[in-house]
């Protein structure tokens, strides 16, 4: 019994309880990737600010910017799902409530990815 606090084998102590190592690495991977991406996003926001519809469309239509926006939003959605999941796992004890909140978090992250992907595709088609 892996959940028996006394009679755990040495082997079971060495393993993460579920799949902690993979999540830990994914958190660090997304964190490191987001440092340059978020700084680029701040530069992008500065470039777009005050340029109106035409300026914003011209910026977002550029292939490099489409890729950069897509990467930033995709990794951000992944990062925020993992971050909120940690908070929910820490504070919500009831499995039903926790599962429901995790589902909502996943739905929000997926919606961000879908909205970004759809919008970028439309802009790319129009360009």
């Amino acid at each position: 019994m892996s959940h028996d606090p006394i009679n755990r084998s040495a082997q079971s102590w060495k393993k993460s309880e579920k799949h902690g190592a993979g999540e830990w690495l994914a958190e660090r991977f997304t964190s490191i990737a987001l440092i340059p991406l978020v700084l680029w996003a701040a530069y992008a926001a500065f470039t777009i600010a005050g340029t109106g519809y035409d300026g914003a469309l011209a910026f977002v239509s550029k292939p490099f910017n489409i890729l950069a926006i897509a990467a930033t939003m995709l990794i951000t959605a992944w990062h925020m799902y993992m971050g909120v999941k940690v908070i929910i796992d820490d504070y919500i004890g009831k499995p039903g409530t926790r599962g429901f909140l995790l589902f909502l978090t996943f739905a929000l992250s997926a919606a961000v990815v879908a909205a970004t992907g759809g919008a970028l595709w439309l802009v790319y088609q129009g360009a």
Binding site: A56, L57, G118
Partner: peptide, 12 residues
């Protein structure tokens, strides 16, 4: 993040 996604959708 949600507002930026909404901004992109409005642009499109």
């Amino acid at each position: 993040v949600v507002l930026i996604a909404a901004w992109l959708v409005c642009l499109a």
